Amino acid sequence: MYFPTAGIECHPFFPFCVAIGVSFVTSMGGVSGAFLLLPFQMSFLGYTNPSVSATNQFFNVLSCPAGVWRYWREGRLVWPLTATVAIGTLPGVFAGAFIRINWLPDPARFKIFTGLVLLYVGGKMLWDLRGKEHASIAETNAQHVERSFYAGQKNGVETAVQSNACTRLVWNSRTFIFDFQNQEFAVPCRRLALLSLVVGLVGGVYGIGGGAIMAPFLVSLFGLPVYAVAGATLFATFLTSVAGVNFYSLLAPLYPGIAVAPDWRMGLLLGLGGMMGMYMGARCQKYVPARVLKYLLAGILLFTAARYLGQTL
């Protein structure tokens, strides 16, 4: 099949299957998988023009809702956290799209910066995990609570275990405090909004939605649990990707000599595959210990950082 905007030709089954596999693994850590599909499109498919960023965001638009719906159904979608991340990310997405088209049609230099950021976050997560060889008692109890909750669901009983849901305690312009699995967590809203702005800038340039960077920051810097973060980052990624796709499409007529708008065929194949992978990953996340998910996130980040830096240095 020929993809006119991308200017490439490949079997449609190939990107579809890759999207399923990538999304299944990454969605368990609250990441859409777009940050891995971007180097896949550029390196394996030869899709290198600026519209690859918009296509990648279109993948998020199609694939994220399946995972978000699953997290919402299970009571693990923290709305104040989602709103704060989305509000901070949106301006960065617009600025990133403008930078991508005008100053970074060849993203080699920016890949160095992104690779260093991902290398730092992934390395910090691994350092923190290595310093804690044994899981905490609270985390172990949380695992038992979740298993009991889903055991009830398997029997056809939609039980509501109070400690499994996120409960908002305080939310204002300064801080957000919520209770999750009998533990209290506090998030400084202004710091989170500023971080989201930077993440949105990076996400707007590369079309990764920002979840790949935001989820590890929330886990490592803010000390939030992966189980509570995953739904929020996926939903924020969806919102910012919708804005990003529309912004790229609006800018396309202004740059007739450059492919800016998404390749809708490629985006549809990746999005449908991602939709299936996202749902399966969100469904299976509860069976994987939080510690394993943190290692998974760190490993994915370090792999991506090595990939970016290896291509540019």
Rank of each mutant, 00 (worst) to 15 (best):
L118K: 03
Y150N: 06
F113T: 10
L116W: 02
L116K: 00
I99F: 11
L129R: 12
L118P: 03
W127T: 00
Q162M: 06
E139Y: 06
N102L: 09
K154Y: 07
L116M: 13
A108R: 13
I137R: 15
A142H: 01
F149K: 08
F94W: 01
S148F: 13
A135K: 04
N102W: 01
V161S: 08
H144S: 12
V161R: 03
L104Y: 13
M125I: 14
A151H: 04
Y150E: 05
F94E: 02
F110C: 12
Y120L: 11
K111M: 14
R100M: 11
V157D: 12
V157F: 03
G156V: 03
Q153G: 07
S148W: 12
S136W: 02
F98E: 11
G122Y: 01
L126W: 04
A97I: 03
R147W: 14
A160V: 11
G152I: 01
P107K: 04
G115H: 04
V161A: 04
S136E: 12
A151N: 00
Q143S: 04
Q153A: 09
N155C: 02
E158R: 09
G131M: 05
D128E: 10
T114A: 10
D106A: 13
S136N: 03
I101C: 05
G115L: 01
Q162I: 00
Q162H: 05
V161H: 07
S148T: 12
V121E: 05
K124H: 01
G96F: 02
W127L: 08
V145M: 07
A135M: 12
W103F: 13
S148L: 11
G123D: 02
E139W: 03
N141C: 09
A151S: 06
K111S: 14
G123T: 12
A135I: 09
I99Q: 02
W103S: 07
Q153C: 06
Q153M: 13
R130K: 13
W127V: 09
N141I: 07
T159D: 00
I101P: 09
E133D: 08
A160W: 05
Q153V: 12
E139N: 10
I137E: 14
E139H: 07
A151M: 08
K132F: 11
L118H: 01
F110G: 12
W103C: 04
A138S: 13
V121S: 02
P105V: 04
H134D: 15
Q153I: 14
T159R: 12
L104C: 07
S136G: 15
L118E: 08
I137F: 00
T159V: 14
I99S: 00
G123Y: 09
Q153S: 05
A138D: 07
T159H: 09
W103T: 04
I137N: 09
H144V: 11
F113H: 05
W103N: 00
Q143R: 14
L119M: 15
D106C: 07
A160Q: 11
I99M: 10
H134T: 15
G123E: 00
T159W: 03
A95R: 00
S136H: 08
A135Q: 13
I137M: 09
G152S: 12
V121C: 08
L104V: 11
A97N: 08
A135L: 10
K111Q: 14
I99Y: 06
A138L: 08
H134M: 15
R109T: 10
Q153F: 14
D106Q: 13
